[in-house]
Nucleic acid binder design. Sequence first.
DNA 1: GGTCACCCGTGACATCTGTCAGGTCCGGCC
DNA 2: GGCCGGACCTGACAGATGTCACGGGTGACC
Lengths: 204, 204
Amino acid sequence: MTAPIRVLLADDENLIREALAQMLDLEDDLTVVAQAASGPEAVAAARHAEPHVAVLDLQMPGLDGIAVTEELARALPGCGTVVVTSHGRPGHLKRALAAGVRGFLPKTTSAATLAQVVRTVHAGGRYVDPDLATEAIAAGDSPLTPREADVLELAADGAPVDEIAARASLSPGTVRNYLSSAVTKLGAANRHDACAVARRMGWI
Amino acid sequence: MTAPIRVLLADDENLIREALAQMLDLEDDLTVVAQAASGPEAVAAARHAEPHVAVLDLQMPGLDGIAVTEELARALPGCGTVVVTSHGRPGHLKRALAAGVRGFLPKTTSAATLAQVVRTVHAGGRYVDPDLATEAIAAGDSPLTPREADVLELAADGAPVDEIAARASLSPGTVRNYLSSAVTKLGAANRHDACAVARRMGWI
DNA sequence: GGTCACCCGTGACATCTGTCAGGTCCGGCC
DNA sequence: GGCCGGACCTGACAGATGTCACGGGTGACC
């Protein structure tokens, strides 16, 4: 038998991470060599544990799974990454693939799939959850220009226009124009609806 | 040795649920007798698996963990319930305790804790995560009147006043008054900020 | 060089919101 | 019965927001 696949596991929810670690460790050909509860921790742990595959939660404090992937691509080029997420938004999938993620799964997939995907990624393959892929294709690309997305993101927490303008170093009028065009493009009723749509799609 | 504690596990995220199930099953004195991926499923499964303790995710399709607890209190009075959640809001804890939940844990707690809490609850005890309890005490009770909370909830998705008024069968003026008083009570800058605050506290 | 998309801005307008001041009912409590 | 708080409503006003029309500047591409 060949040496087992070395896996790094990062998730800020200890309960989940430890359960997954135990589960993956039960597989004969997998061994969890490091765990991390945040993005920066994951990068640090990866540096000296040298895993073959990193299984990363998408939402983590510090750096999210995608940012960690980018770091690892530099620090540990041989290491494949699998991203796992609770909220499978189309935009996230696109960004993940662009960052070099080779496996992308919602947490609703069955447990058996995860181990299988780790093997696939280790072998150089890719795996994207079919439902998520379908959604991503159906959703298409973001119709928002970069600035529109920026402004919409700043508007997401309900801040008034003046505050957005100050934070984006724009004039209030420009902010309103961007918001207005974003609302139109997204077919939303108002800015908050637009935020909701953009968030659902993973565009902001 | 006495018979093992019969555990029901409900979580809509298959990956997580299966991992937790395996983990709990590894404990000598625990056995997972049923799993469910939604609230209604959990109630149905509990009826004929007759678990001693139900471990429920707070957010599930159909019925949430608290609603399931209430159902189980009727259908299976002897069954203790433990609620596990990703987002530990003070208000949720209060509602959970009021519904008869005897264990309340964020998913960030360590894995060992869960098994221990299951045992505690089975023995008739209670366990609430200390951090969450502190937060809940610090947050205090909701200052919102029932109607204010209703209206704020309807406003949460960014609907305009007229739509809220229609859905709540109120006049637009009344809606604005409720929103205004909610904003004042919560010390928020506007209705959306108020929604954010109320949500963070688990009041809506 | 022309065209186009994006970026950034102004001004003006109608509408929506947030706030205030007032009012009527009803039920609980001393 | 009197008091109080909550539910419900109206009207009015300033200010914020959404929309439209209209500028100019830049860089990519043909």
